[in-house]
Design a protein around this nucleic acid. Sequence first.
DNA 1: CAACATACGGAGACGGTCTCCGGATTGTCA
DNA 2: TGACAATCCGGAGACCGTCTCCGTATGTTG
Lengths: 194, 194
Amino acid sequence: MSDTTGARARRPRTDAQRNRTHILDVAEQYFSEHGITGSLDAIAKQAGIGPGTLYRHFPNREALLAALLKAREDELVSRHDAIRREVRDSTEALAQWLEALGRWSTAFEGLPEPLRMALTEDTSPLALTCQGYITITDEFLTAAQRDGGARPEVRGRDLFLSVLATSWVRSAAMADESSPLALNALMRTGWAIP
Amino acid sequence: MSDTTGARARRPRTDAQRNRTHILDVAEQYFSEHGITGSLDAIAKQAGIGPGTLYRHFPNREALLAALLKAREDELVSRHDAIRREVRDSTEALAQWLEALGRWSTAFEGLPEPLRMALTEDTSPLALTCQGYITITDEFLTAAQRDGGARPEVRGRDLFLSVLATSWVRSAAMADESSPLALNALMRTGWAIP
DNA sequence: CAACATACGGAGACGGTCTCCGGATTGTCA
DNA sequence: TGACAATCCGGAGACCGTCTCCGTATGTTG
């Protein structure tokens, strides 16, 4: 529905489109290096544009983040498909999905924070994404529960939050690198049935 | 060693002392209402003093926080004593200690964040406090492990981080109030041996 | 090539952190 | 008690980050 709609808007100007993708490129790198709390104006400057331009494309940090994560969404969705296709054991499938979620939520330093926020304020552009992933988690979870591999009292939302929480611990590189692993193990013994 | 040291500093002026405690009072209330990310200058204004005065007493937000938590330290220490005195079952003792830690780390909205930071940068005034509580956690934990109530591979540091992580989830009041409870339960099945 | 919609850019309002130092206040000692 | 020195106060303002507004520039369409 983007081609021949009745009163269709003309398509965005090419310079705008170019700027948009360029901002995303720069932001991707900048957030990777400085974490998501880095200065947005600095990103604009590094992209060679004015702050106004950046803020028109992405009205705030969350919007920019959402756009960046959109790119990684395909990655996660295809991982989701691969797991459904290749992993027979439903418990193992859940475990692998949670691991994929963990990688996703540590894409940038400090990412777990806005993700958690998005779960409370549904006005956030990240809220929809999170909700979708919770649903997927629930699917894997109920399958595992049906097969007796996961405790029945656990909910998908709780697992999603667990992943976020352990990713949050991992943030701000700890002196002790083993803690995130330990927490993951703790979580797993928490939801799994041996 | 505060009385008759050789070249002892004279004791602080009474107005300074008065200001200090007054700042703490105001900050306690302000952080309770607005979370720990509230404006420090606003606290100064509300206390009827200049920003400079606040920052001389507490050079940054962390220092102020540390001072506020110092007050609650007694509370936690006495809780620690009470548990050791009254709770016979070492596993139950550990559980109760973790619960006390959880309450401590949710004293103010947003508190878990600086606490986690303090664990990585040992220059923080909060670092010592955290370290102490990790040690205590380790004591309770090894006792529980000796009695076969806790998994041997778990470490005190991991449990402390777990508590912080669940408190972090609780922050920013979720629409779903049951999640923190669920996470706590998950954690417990994670470290406990039935 | 108009003329119109759209987008750009940067000046600057705003709010927060934190510093600096002239002036006020307190403690001390003769 | 009356200086004097040590100490502390207060607020102006430097600095940084977020975000807005609008005159100007650039694309797009007929």
